[in-house]
């Protein structure tokens, strides 16, 4: 029962946060709503025994990326933007597109409802925790992608600095 309660609580937090993120006028409020949504997702990771991702989600997303967002929001003057019209002119077309997408998602899920019931989830291997298992795989099979990812981050850091620094004329 606790599973159900926790799932719906986190799911509600996630969806509500997401909806507020895309609808609120003030960008700071949007960011805070997004934090709530991400926290909900972190909770869902925990429910699925992905402890490592839970920690990464909290530290990296909420602690890192969102702080970055807040910084930028403070840095960039958004007061004018908050008073402007919030939605795009072609919103009808977009909504139509979205409804179609939603419908197709629903149909997919409905049709696959049976097929997704493969068998009951495989039993959890006892003794090995999530972090150990993850690191075993990450640093053995996925070592090269891991290093490439570090390179990507380096490039992103340099790029971010280059983009944001003042031009010296």
């Amino acid at each position: 029962m606790t599973d159900i309660a926790f799932f719906y609580a986190f799911a509600a937090l996630t969806v509500l946060g997401a909806i507020l993120t895309v609808t609120l006028r003030n960008a700071i409020h949007c960011a805070i709503a997004l934090i709530a949504s991400l926290a909900g997702i972190a909770g869902l990771y925990l429910l699925q025994k992905a402890e490592f991702l839970f920690v990464v989600q909290i530290m990296l997303y909420i602690g890192g990326v969102m702080v970055l967002f807040l910084f930028v929001i403070m840095l960039v003057n958004l007061d004018g933007a908050a008073k402007e019209r919030q939605y795009h002119r072609h919103w009808l077309a977009a909504v139509a597109c979205l409804i179609g997408t939603g419908a197709i998602f629903a149909a997919f899920l409905h049709r696959g409802a049976g097929s997704l019931k493969l068998e009951s989830p495989l039993p959890v291997v006892p003794g090995a925790g999530n972090v150990e298992t993850l690191s075993m795989v990450l640093f053995r099979e996925y070592l090269v992608p891991f290093e490439v990812a570090s390179l990507l981050l380096l490039v992103a850091v340099v790029g971010g600095v280059m983009m944001a620094k003042k031009r010296i004329d």
Binding site: H90, A93, A94, C97, L98, G100, T101, I104, F108
Partner: peptide, 20 residues
């Protein structure tokens, strides 16, 4: 920007439709 995004979405819809 968002016109492109819309076209992009339409493309996604099209792929879905193809599979459907």
């Amino acid at each position: 920007l968002q016109s492109y995004a819309l076209v992009f979405m339409a493309g996604v819809l099209g792929i879905f439709g193809y599979f459907w």
